[in-house]
Simulated scan of single mutants.
Amino acid sequence: MMPSHIAAKNSSLSLPPNTSVPCANTQQNMPPASINNPFLMFQPNTKSYEDMTLIGNGAYGTVYKAKDLANNGQFVALKKVRVPLGEDGVPVNAVREIALLKQLTSFEHPNVVRLLDICQGRKLENERQMLLYLVFEHVDQDLSTYLEKCPSPGLGPERIKDITYQLLNGLDFLHFNRVLHRDLKPQNILISNQGIVKLADFGLARLYTSNVTLTSVVVTLWYRPPEVLMAQPYGTAVDVWSCGCILAELYRRKPLFPGENEVDQLAKIFEVVGSPSQSDWPLDVSLPWTTFKFYKGVPFRDVVPEICSDGADLLKKMVCYDPVQRISCAAAMKHPYFRDFEMNPPSCIKDTLQNNTQHPKASRFYKIS
């Protein structure tokens, strides 16, 4: 299936051009109560979007580029999703997660794509589904396309550092507010022509609590950490692993761990980071420790020759086998690799700091209550 933000060729639209979608607009600043009563977020409105063209098809919806008629025809990304209907209508959990994303948007974090609107579409009675249209700010391209367009020999080290810092900044904000993205990959990271990085595609995002049961079918294979591959409990460290894989890919211009299946993925990981000892192998994994050869691991500068020594050290800490020992986003941003960024952060983060002087960390702003 094509990632959400990659342009599709020769695809048929399920909505014809010049179609207008009426919208039930959400409040600009949703009260915390809307998390408990998510249906409060629908407000009658005459706003509509039209002139839609297909951007791409993803596993969790179809994305169109559309014009916002209420805002001088500015472009937006309109994502059509199908929500299953139960006996009581739209499942509360589905709408609650959308409400959470809307509340995150109200903080206007520079590195998280903004959810501008939510439109309730028609009910598909025969399929017991309802269409929802999530309206996001339109960003020029995803990181995968950005890398493909970059001429040889690729991105410079300072540009890679800038992109990674912004990515960590957005993730730190999500994690501080107990949100796991769970599907980080270059296709789900947007980057504007001005170089601003934004986390996008929250189809697998989840509010994390200590007693929640999380599915193991998350994260695209090449960016999936060992604890998810082995169906173990996981938390925010899953996103840090994926971010580390992306950091390496920015230098290499190809994936760090391109496995063909889950077993091969683990083998490729162990070959680089080293195999865990038999005593560290989880007891409740269907694959025995003896399934894999024992690897000592290799220096990261052998795998990513262009990276500096500080970058190699950070990468090692981000793709650490043990999620408990894996570095956090907040700690990664303070790593010596980003030494220059403490005094001179990327411009989008600097602007936010200046506009939010009462909040010393641009990466976090406010904590959701």
Rank of each mutant, 00 (worst) to 15 (best):
I6G: 00
A8N: 09
P17H: 02
P17T: 03
T19K: 06
Q27C: 06
Q28E: 15
A33R: 13
S34Y: 14
Q43S: 11
T46E: 14
E50W: 00
M52E: 07
A59C: 08
T62Q: 12
K65P: 00
D68M: 02
G73L: 09
F75K: 10
V76D: 04
V83W: 05
G86T: 15
G86H: 06
A94W: 01
V95K: 03
A99Y: 00
T105L: 06
P110T: 09
V113P: 01
L116I: 12
Q120T: 13
N126L: 13
E127D: 15
Q129C: 10
F136P: 09
D142V: 09
K149N: 14
P157C: 05
I163F: 13
I163C: 08
T164V: 15
Q166W: 10
D172H: 13
N177S: 06
V179M: 14
V179E: 06
L180G: 02
L180F: 03
D183A: 02
Q187M: 00
N188L: 04
L190W: 03
Q194Y: 03
L199K: 07
F202M: 07
T215R: 08
L221N: 02
W222P: 02
P226Q: 07
M230K: 09
P233N: 15
A237D: 09
D239H: 06
V240C: 04
S242I: 08
C245Q: 05
I246Q: 05
E249A: 01
P255E: 04
L256E: 05
N261K: 06
E262H: 13
V263M: 10
Q265M: 06
F270S: 02
V272S: 02
S279F: 04
S279P: 00
W281M: 10
V285S: 15
L287V: 11
K293H: 10
D310N: 13
G311F: 04
D313K: 13
I327T: 11
A332T: 03
K334S: 14
F338A: 08
M343R: 12
P345Y: 10
C348V: 14
A362T: 01
S363C: 13
Y366K: 14
